[in-house]
Design a protein around this nucleic acid. Structure first.
Lengths: 240, 240
DNA sequence: CGGACAATTGAAGCCGGTCAAAACTGGTGG
DNA sequence: CCACCAGTTTTGACCGGCTTCAATTGTCCG
């Protein structure tokens, strides 16, 4: 069973990491750090690097990914405006376990290790929110993990499209959400080859579930995509 | 690339969750709760259940798993002596996102929500250790995730065997570690069918990498298993 | 307008899932 | 102590979903 539905929903809560914190703490965190603009494709930090702070996404979108020995890239997660990057490594006092790159031009505020840990050590509000956020991240991650392990590519793609629709909604209540992701990124996220991905998108399109352009996907039949994701297991409709 | 090698290594650190804490805090946590014995197969908590506390493994081994709509079981993680269970849901204030069952007869100490959160709110030492633990868990989880997504079953199995060898070592320095897991559990952990798993074990056995009994696996050629896991990608040996 | 990169289509083959059946194991009671 | 039974492991055969390789088409910018 799925813990969060629709998938990716928990991000709304994740974004509130700083919400409810005393304004002076938020200020301290965000005002000191320099904001830097990363263009599409630019890398914010690399797997294996030593963390010197955390990054706050002021605007834009980034992908967290891991590069395998064979050169393949597995996308772990997509982060959007308001989310924090790189704190796992800082908390665990290890090197980065994954890399992060901008998917679109993004404004990223750097918060130094000293500042972040300093505020954290003095603020139980922040550490509580962080603990809660990490707990939430886990349930979402476990869903993705189980999906990967037990579902076929078609179902995973449908699942990811639903998740991405939430990510790319950007707060807007628009019906039409453009998932702006290259076919390669979509494939690397779904854990499949780009050729397979393209073929499945074509099928979905022919079934009138989605619209596609060369660099985006838009869901036009949400229920249909949910059906493809097959959350309930294959069974006679109406029958338990 | 792999962040933790050998895989599963970070458990050593995870076990130290309570280490370094003031003795009275540890005492408070562990002395109040009732210890219950779970026999093999018994369920400690179920996905979807409302958490009322956390569980500390005094002895034994448990599996964290998720059941899919089609009835398949995906094992997320194996926990051993000294590890804590069920805190993710408590921290995120959500229902359990997975289930936990005993793999062998296990003594589990229940710590009530009030006690745990009470100590947590007053102890920055505990919350710091918890944050660190969660950060560590992430990097391990990301490794597993990437493995699942980018490697074939043979490589994943080898990876899991190496990880499980650490889990089942139980502190002993013995060379011979028996991985006591049913074929089905091993398959559910690797994300494959039990028939495929059995065939691969047979191959490994024929290559003299492992020994098997009907309910355990033992690595006898560690280097060989590492080679099967193919951490470095297929390439001419010696060549970069 | 051209050139580089991304997306798409086609064809071939294998990895791994599924179904079915046989062999084996451990535990139980006669 | 042995025969039996239920559950698990193992083996066999089949085939379909995906990957891979190769080639074509499409798209975006300088």
């Amino acid at each position: 069973m799925l813990t969060n539905f629709p998938p990716g929903n928990s991000r709304l809560k994740a974004k509130q990491l700083f919400e409810g914190l005393p304004p002076e703490e938020i200020n301290k965190l965000l005002s000191e750090g320099a904001t830097h603009v990363f263009r599409k494709g630019e890398i914010i930090f690399r797997e294996g690097g030593i963390p010197t702070g955390v990054f706050h996404i002021k605007s834009g979108k980034v992908k967290k990914y891991k590069t395998t020995a064979t050169g393949a890239e597995q996308i772990i997660y997509i982060c959007a405006e308001g989310e924090l990057l790189g704190y796992h490594a800082l908390l665990s006092e290890e090197r980065y376990s994954d890399s992060t790159a901008a998917l679109v031009t993004s404004e990223i505020t750097f918060i130094s290790k000293e500042t972040f840990l300093g505020v954290l050590s003095r603020s139980s509000a922040l550490s509580n929110r962080l603990l809660k956020l990490l707990g939430l991240e886990f349930s979402g991650f476990i869903d993705s993990f189980t999906n990967l392990a037990t579902k076929n590519v078609r179902e995973r793609l449908a699942f990811n499209l639903l998740m991405l629709e939430e990510k790319f909604r950007d707060g807007k209540k628009t019906d039409a959400v453009d998932i702006m992701l290259s076919r390669t990124d979509l494939a690397n996220m779904t854990g499949t080859a780009k050729e397979t991905l393209v073929r499945l998108l074509k099928e979905f399109k022919q079934k009138n579930l989605i619209q596609t352009t060369s660099n985006s996907v838009r869901i036009i039949d949400r229920e249909g995509v949910i059906a493809e994701a097959n959350f309930m297991g294959k069974q006679t409709p109406g029958k338990k």
